[in-house]
Each structure stands twice: as structure tokens, then as C-alpha cells.
């Protein structure tokens, strides 16, 4: 028998909280910088960001102190995002190229590489300072 079973579901939905994550502010403020300044002074509150799960693969971090420049990381990088600086025995990572597979962190014999929680990486310039890790 053909009916319209979606109707009761829709009516129920009216009294439920939205399933989507909340925006930082409920309504778009007239000035974002002013709003953020207010948040800084503690006069306004923002919805906290949604937590990422444990072992999330975010922006890569690099600790050059132990690095020997063995270039194993560059060898397994599928996106060719790692440049080996041979003379300095260091590496440089272009985050705009990185595909967040975390393979370099697995292979690094010195444990110099790790994945952080950061995922808000959008920028107009793909060679911006925060998108080059060295």
C-alpha cells in the first residue's frame, strides 16, 4: 500500500535539535574581528570546535633536532610534498601538497615527524609561512 511515511518523520523532526554542528556564532556578526575581540575580552561566547578523534591525522609537525636527512620520508611520500635539503641534512614539507597519509611519520627512524590536530589550513597562498614546515 502506497502511503507517505515521511510525513510523521518530518513532524517529529520539528521537535528535535539539529543534527549539524553549530557555527562558532549563532548569527553572522556584522564584524567578525569585533566579535572575536569581544570573545577575547570574555563578553561573548563562541560554540567550541568539534573535537577531533584520537590519532587524527592533521597538519604535520617536524622536529629537526634529531633529523639526519636520511630522506626515507621523501621516498614514501605519495604526493612528493617533502623536499630534502641535502646540504643542511634537513627536510622541508609543503603542507599544501601533503595528503595526510602519515606514512612519513611511520617510516621516520628518529621519530622527528608527527601529525597534529590542526586541520584549519585554508589559505589563498599555497606557500604561506604556516603551510611550509621546516
Amino acid at each position: 500500500m502506497a502511503t507517505l511515511p515521511m510525513i510523521p518523520e518530518l513532524l517529529r523532526q520539528l521537535f528535535r535539535t539539529p543534527a549539524t554542528n553549530a557555527f562558532p556564532a549563532k548569527y553572522l556578526p556584522s564584524s567578525v574581528t569585533e566579535f572575536l575581540a569581544k570573545v577575547g575580552r570574555g563578553e561573548a561566547a563562541i560554540h567550541p570546535p568539534v573535537p577531533v578523534p584520537k590519532d587524527f591525522r592533521g597538519k604535520i609537525t617536524y622536529d629537526p633536532t634529531g633529523c639526519t636527512g636520511c630522506s626515507l620520508c621523501a621516498k614514501v611520500c605519495p604526493a612528493h610534498a617533502i623536499e630534502v635539503l641535502k646540504d643542511e641534512k634537513r627536510i622541508r614539507i609543503y603542507v599544501s601538497q601533503c595528503i595526510f597519509c602519515s606514512q612519513c611519520t611511520d617510516i621516520c627512524p628518529k621519530g622527528s615527524l608527527a601529525m597534529s590536530d590542526a586541520f584549519l589550513l585554508a589559505d589563498e597562498n599555497r606557500y604561506a609561512d604556516h603551510l611550509i614546515v621546516e
Partner: peptide, 18 residues
Amino acid sequence: EQAMDTIELLTGNRVNYG
């Protein structure tokens, strides 16, 4: 989304699980 969230929990990413 429930399946996506579980995949993210298990593998570390929602879409490209790796």
C-alpha cells in the same frame, strides 16, 4: 554520518582512510 564518524574513529580520517 554515523558510519562516517565510526570510520574516522577507526582510521583517522573520514574520507581518505589510508
